[in-house]
Design a protein around this nucleic acid. Structure first.
Length: 277
DNA sequence: CTGCGGAGTATGGTTCACGA
DNA sequence: TCGTGAACCATACTCCGCAG
């Protein structure tokens, strides 16, 4: 793969990758002194390294788009190369991550009894954000494009499934919501979650972020009616409030999708899921 | 009054079936 | 072939009762 290429120049830690990723989203191409700013945001990396890394990234994206590089084998390959472990460990070190093997493998319609159901790999906030971006850009239904250009770590099927849950969640917002979930994130920002604009939250602080259920989950829904931006399907909040910073993010998917060498370890990464006790 | 444990419930992810 | 809807299953979280 291209893994080695990436790690060649110098080691990029997940944190650095994430910082890099966020910086890319933060400073659009037309930003003056873009690289300087990005370099400033990525600790321990020089301007040179930043540029080099970006070129690599672009190259990978190009290859992906030109079809030269098969989409990641997702779960299957993840297991081998990787890190999947650390990243998705989203929740409290749940153990179910170790064993995702051989992707469902379409063809085989093994009955459940035959093949054990794959344990779910939780979506990270990063992935969810990318999903939202993709949703905004391609709209509802084009899961393939979203999977291909945004959430490269997920298959179209997974994206569709996630979307299904997401919309269900949105719809049920009016009802009483008891626990916070990643689906409460209905908009994206530069690597940060714009604490949902009110719809669901109600959580004073970025409760949604910490993900792991801020105890505030107890709060009964205080939104009797459908929240402002959240319509029904289509683009709820999405596509509206995001305005600002996001605008730059969208439309430049190049920044977002993780190229092969990043896709499995760096980008989806660790995400700020659980910040420890 | 506080801490612990168990039961119940919500949430999230995968898989299957059906239709366009 | 792809998207959608529904069902199934596993896990995490919350609530409640009991013991110390």
């Amino acid at each position: 793969m291209t893994v080695d290429e990436a790690s060649n120049s110098s080691e990029w830690s997940r944190e650095q990758d994430k910082a890099f990723e966020n910086a890319l989203a933060t400073y659009p191409e037309d930003t003056s002194d873009r690289w300087e700013k990005i370099a400033a945001d990525v600790p321990g990396k020089t301007l040179e390294e930043i540029k080099q890394h970006y070129e690599l990234l672009q190259d990978d994206v190009n290859r992906i788009e030109s079809g030269c590089v098969p989409l990641p084998a997702y779960s299957s390959s993840e297991g081998s190369t990787c890190h999947a472990g650390d990243e998705v460990t989203s929740k409290k070190g749940s153990d179910h991550l170790g064993h995702f093997n051989s992707e469902s493998d379409h063809g085989s319609k093994n009955s459940r009894s035959d093949q054990e159901r794959r344990k779910g790999i939780a979506w990270t906030e990063d992935e969810h954000r990318l999903f939202l971006l993709g949703l905004e850009k391609y709209g509802k239904g084009d899961w393939r494009s979203i999977s291909r250009n945004f959430v490269v770590t997920r298959t179209p099927t997974q994206v569709a499934s996630h979307a299904q849950k997401y919309f269900i969640r949105l719809n049920s917002i009016n009802k009483d919501r008891r626990r916070s979930s990643i689906h409460d994130i209905t908009s994206v920002g530069n690597g940060e979650i714009l604490a949902t604009q009110g719809p669901i939250t109600g959580e004073p602080n970025g409760a949604a972020t910490g993900g792991s259920s801020a105890k505030s989950a107890k709060q009964p829904s205080q939104l009797p009616a459908a929240p402002p931006g959240v319509g029904m399907y289509s683009s709820p909040t999405i596509g509206q409030p995001i305005g600002g910073p996001l605008v730059s993010t969208v439309g430049t998917p190049v920044n977002l999708p993780a190229p092969p060498h990043l896709a499995y370890g760096a980008v989806v990464p660790s995400a700020p899921m659980n910040m420890g006790p």
